[in-house]
């Protein structure tokens, strides 16, 4: 089924029948408003392997961000379970670092360097000197070594996003969680950030769980895409997109995949007949 991509580091998974890195099993999530309890996702299951770039894609209201927050540990599941390397997830922790969409995720009272060092020190992962070294290493990777002593308010939106990514990578988390990290950027910067993220992945081979509402971004960034239906979020399909990158934008097969996703997300069964004729090798429809 899923071709497993090679991991970049010596993994400590057992060589026999390596389980998925992240297992989300029949997960139902609810959130509370003053008046009622709203079901955000209903019995969602998926598995993320090491070095996957797994994308959660769906229209607004499909609970994809809620799902990501649950994996991060900010929301307790109503039913089902989340397991990271076989261990159930309880509460937030530094083994799952989140990159948020908002620019204010960087404490404004810390310089860029201190921001990247902050989680390393706060979680007690490294001593100050080592943390500084590692912070500079990852700042260099995202091309911001020259801005190490700048305060976040002096940076542009794209640079802030880069700092947040460097900060997350410096923690070397088991899984990197990104919640529409580029949604607040302008189109050109977003394109550039997608490119840089893919380059970083080529280099570091981290495991990524990425939330977006853009079909194009999902196809470019991800190697596997989980489509979610809205109100409440349920799994609609899983699609493979490892063959696409930024250079496939506009290509015929890329457009076909984008159209297929669009159809799966928006008009339920209308085009099911034609669908059969299309290439089904890399698509699994879940019911």
């Amino acid at each position: 089924m899923t071709a497993r991509l090679p991991g970049h580091t010596a993994s400590n998974l057992s060589p026999v029948s390596a389980p998925a890195l992240l297992q989300v099993d029949n997960l139902s999530l609810e959130y509370r408003t003053a008046q009622r309890v709203v079901r955000a996702t209903h019995q969602v299951s998926f598995e993320v392997d090491k070095a996957d770039r797994f994308v959660l894609l769906g229209p607004s209201g499909c609970g994809k961000s809620t799902l990501l927050k649950a994996v991060a540990g900010f929301i307790e599941p109503r039913e089902g379970a989340i397991r990271l390397q076989g261990q159930p997830v309880h509460g937030p922790g530094p083994d799952r670092i989140v990159v948020f969409q908002e620019f204010d995720q960087l404490p404004p009272w810390k310089t860029v360097r201190q921001n990247v060092m902050f989680p390393l020190l706060a979680s007690g992962t490294l001593k100050r000197a080592e943390a500084e070294q590692r912070a500079l290493h990852y700042l260099d990777k995202v091309g911001l070594a020259a801005f190490a002593d700048a305060y976040p308010h002096t940076l542009s939106g794209g640079m802030k996003a880069r700092v947040a990514i460097a900060r997350a990578l410096a923690m070397q988390p088991k899984i990197l969680l990104m919640d529409e990290p580029f949604a607040a950027l302008d189109a050109l910067t977003r394109r550039k950030m997608q490119e840089e993220l893919l380059l970083l992945w080529e280099e570091v081979r981290f495991t990524l769980l990425f939330v977006t509402h853009s079909i194009e971004e999902a196809l470019v960034v991800g190697n596997r895409i989980l489509l979610l239906s809205p109100h409440p979020g349920r799994v609609r399909a899983e699609i493979h997109s490892h063959q696409y990158d930024l250079h496939s934008l506009g290509a015929a097969d890329f457009q076909a995949s984008a159209r297929r996703i669009h159809r799966l997300l928006f008009d339920d069964d209308a085009a099911a007949e034609q669908d059969a004729a299309l290439d089904f090798t890399d698509i699994r429809i879940a019911y």
């Binding site: 927050k69 900010f74 922790g93 670092i97 404490p107 706060a122 007690g124």
Partner: peptide, 27 residues
Amino acid sequence: VSETLRMAGRNYGLRGLRLVVHILIPA
């Protein structure tokens, strides 16, 4: 203090008084 900043702090394992000192007071 923005929810994002709080969540970022909790993400790194800060809780209780450490969250107050490292996130809430400066913010």
